[in-house]
Write a protein that binds this DNA or RNA. Structure first.
Lengths: 334, 334
DNA sequence: TCCGGTATCGATAACGGTTGCGATACCGAT
DNA sequence: ATCGGTATCGCAACCGTTATCGATACCGGA
């Protein structure tokens, strides 16, 4: 809580100019090893922390990458983040996270806030934005990546998987195994566009073989095991003839499995189950649940690499459109 | 991707001085409603995003609160974060997250990095830091809160629960139910100090009634259902007479429960289980697992309130030491 | 001894806003 | 018409650091 310590103070203490002190502390060249050591020692012992606000303004560079995701509770985005961090670790860049809460208006204000710090890059989940957000993404003088989804019209770079296709493929797999009476349990959240696309892809896939959903339920609030269990119980009591349920998230399908365990239903004998994401929590359960891997870590890695490369080349590299193919794992519940 | 847009450009377009434009866009007084509207319209239509780096340097104020946590994957810290966000939402402050990866050296560098942005406050998980970190926390000219834990010597403000006590109380509850052959499964992570304290408290609690651990296992890597299941299987095959297992995390105890389900063991008849955290994933399982609530959301809220209050009063308020009492819920597995 | 070249350092001018205070315009009251 | 007061605006200095470029010191070779 002592007086504010400035570079000028350190310089004075070391008997050098501000410039030399600045260079020494940044590891810039043109400083002799001796004076550098001296300056570092003084700075360290006095607990000097350089003011990066001033530094960034002056150098016109901010070594931060803005990452905007809908939520941090949902198991899925932290893993995208860890992919990003892993790649950025080898560079001077650091990720900074913003949370939009599955709300496009909030997303707009979060992105505006982040861009006002002039980051070196921006990674945002999803392709759906307000018009004002799209304008900002276009105008931004840093690389911009829209991640996780490829079904839509990206403003600039894009990495992700097709959720439409993921839904469709799961439908095909389910039909291929002979199930015909099929239910769907998904989020009501109007702005979870990727869940919506999986739903659309799924019903498309069914329709292609002239099958329509036997039952359908939407829940509000975040996905949870608890909710999955309740919804499943509800749906099965309403539609006892159901042969298979597809959930918009693994968390929900785990809940479904829990209901079946409690109700003494055999899976997939009495009822087949499938989810989406291939979350970590699927490991270690009594049964290996069917799911589609969402490539979360890899999407994060690739998004970060796009930022890095675009920085090197000065953005003259052309736009990346990177569509990953998610792998279905059938597990033991189909 | 047009030319960089500066305040001066907006001012020119609106036919006013930079100052007036600045005031208008910040909602500062001394601007007529008419000119303000005009300036805002021009800024909006051109997609102008003010440069907060320059603004913050000039105004000597950054409306950010740095939050440093060990991990974002672990279910527990996102909830602390949501508590912080909820409280900060009513203020101009925004949280910025840094991840230390359960590594004090990394924590030091993350904190240094965050402080270099001169935030309005700093919230960090845990009381254990390197000496250099402690110096920085002392020196920082913003309020600092150490959160989640109260067993130790806080540098400034502090909110949390006693993990020593949480472990001890769980030991008492377990003993009170007559269990005597007790195992513990915990993380090997040397720098997960809170898990360590729960372990110490737990063995203390047992020792107080002359009981010693019948078996003990430490795993490395992050906690997961999978690991919990494997460790439990391992321990039970090694110590078949075990009556109860205490885990350092709910995620692990869920894995234990899964093993018991798969192995046809009755819980708590054959083996009793207890975890820690009261995580959301406990809801919806076949059995309600015993656990201790870690007050994550509330800790976040209180930490944020300390920052807010300390800002109002200019830090002249005296240090807060806020010890919450975690509630044990015995569930159906003890 | 003198010279060119390199290593090391410092003075100055930004960087893009905001604070503080002074200037101007406009109003009703005298 | 003059005046005091308020609403509105602009000028200049400054925030703390870094880029740029010029200055100085030092070295080996001619």
């Amino acid at each position: 809580m002592t007086k504010k310590l400035l570079l000028k103070d350190i310089a004075k203490l070391a008997g050098v100019s501000e410039m030399t002190a600045s260079r020494a502390l940044r590891g810039a060249p043109d400083v002799s090893a001796k004076t550098k050591a001296k300056i570092e020692e003084i700075a360290r012992s006095h607990g000097y922390v350089p003011n990066r606000i001033a530094g960034s303004l002056s150098s016109q560079s901010v070594n931060l990458v803005a990452v905007v995701v809908p939520s941090l509770n949902s198991f899925v985005f932290p893993e995208v983040l860890s992919g990003i961090s892993a790649v950025l670790k080898e560079s001077p860049l650091k990720p900074v996270v913003g949370v939009s809460g599955y709300d496009l208006e909030e997303e707009e204000s979060v992105i505006r806030e982040m861009l006002s710090w002039r980051p070196s890059g921006l990674i945002v989940a999803g392709l759906e934005h307000t018009e004002a957000t799209r304008r900002m993404l276009q105008q931004a003088d840093c690389p911009v990546v829209e991640a996780m989804d490829v079904d839509g019209d990206p403003v600039r770079h894009c990495v992700g998987i097709s959720h439409l296709q993921a839904g469709r493929e799961m439908a095909e797999q389910i039909l291929a195994r002979g199930y015909r009476s099929i239910g769907f349990i998904g989020t009501k959240m109007p702005q979870d566009f990727r869940a919506r696309k999986r739903f659309d892809g799924f019903t498309d896939g069914l329709a292609a073989q002239a099958v329509t959903l036997a039952d359908l339920e939407h829940y509000s609030g975040e996905s949870s095991i608890q909710t999955g269990r309740q919804m499943t119980a509800q749906m099965l009591s309403r539609s006892p003839d159901l042969e298979c349920i597809y959930y918009s998230s693994d968390v929900m399908s785990v809940g479904g499995l829990m209901h079946c365990l409690a109700a003494g239903l055999s899976v997939p004998g009495d009822i087949a189950l499938a989810g989406f994401n291939n979350l970590q929590i699927l490991q270690g359960l009594p049964l290996q649940l069917a799911t589609t891997d969402a490539c979360r870590h890899e999407i994060g890695e690739r998004a970060a690499r796009i930022i890095l490369k675009s920085r090197e080349t000065g953005g003259a590299e052309g736009l990346v459109f990177d569509r990953l193919t998610p792998a279905i794992s059938l597990g033991e519940t189909l």
